[in-house]
Design a protein around this nucleic acid. Sequence first.
DNA 1: ATCCAGGAAT
DNA 2: ATTCCTGGAT
Length: 277
Amino acid sequence: MSGWEVMVSEFMLQQTPVVRVLPVWEEWMRRWPRPQDLAAEPLSEALKAWGRLGYPRRAQRLHAAAVEITTEYNGEVPRTEEALRALPGVGDYTAAAIACFAFGEPTVVVDTNIRRVHARLFGGMALPEPSPRASEFARAKDVQPADRTAANLWNVSVMELGALVCTARSPKCDACPVFEQCAWIAAGQPAPHYTPKGQAWKGTDRQVRGAIMAVLREHDHPVPQDSFLADLGRQSHATYVALEKLQSESSQRERALAGLLKDGLAVLEDDGVRLPS
DNA sequence: ATCCAGGAAT
DNA sequence: ATTCCTGGAT
């Protein structure tokens, strides 16, 4: 895979399971095989093609990163963690992942799957701490093979083990290749020391933002604010509920819309709201 | 009907 | 520490 292909996939995978990403990624690669191709498009096209992957600001940042790669790096995705890390939407994880998976750099990759595998295999815990700690990066660096190629294979393998076998809720320990070495198994599979707090969704501003974006993606021209309810055709039930809320609770509608405008995900015109160009 | 997976920016 | 989305699994 090219640097760009890896980069787009990592952006999409940031908060979205792989099965939902795949078809969208293929369409993006067909339309925009190079960073310059995406950079030449208005942001609205990126947001529409992002569809329902969630967190549309990721599409916005990917578009901004494509522009930066085009103007600052002559259309070549940078190869070092440091340069990658400076791009919009690229944090520690994504910088390490692109450098490793696209360019073979022996970076220390730490995503949620790897954190969980390490917590069990080496830490004897059911789950890692809710938020990453410095000690985890130190340990990840420590357990990684020194050899460049081996380090690469290690990163892919641990991540895949976490995604397919050492899963959060029902780990397939009887199919695990490192069952014998697992500190969590040795400790008798102790329960988690905390209960993960799920993110609220129903009735939140995030849901209303998502509903507004879903309508905006359907239109090339500004949508009058009071006509959102006329667009219910293709909406899910949850979105319908959110749209009703849009209609009835003006304070929440204004808050959600204000957030989208502030984030540059929507633009206010005289005759309505539209996607940014 | 509820739960769950999944990082960056501030 | 908190904010940002969605669809498939349970």
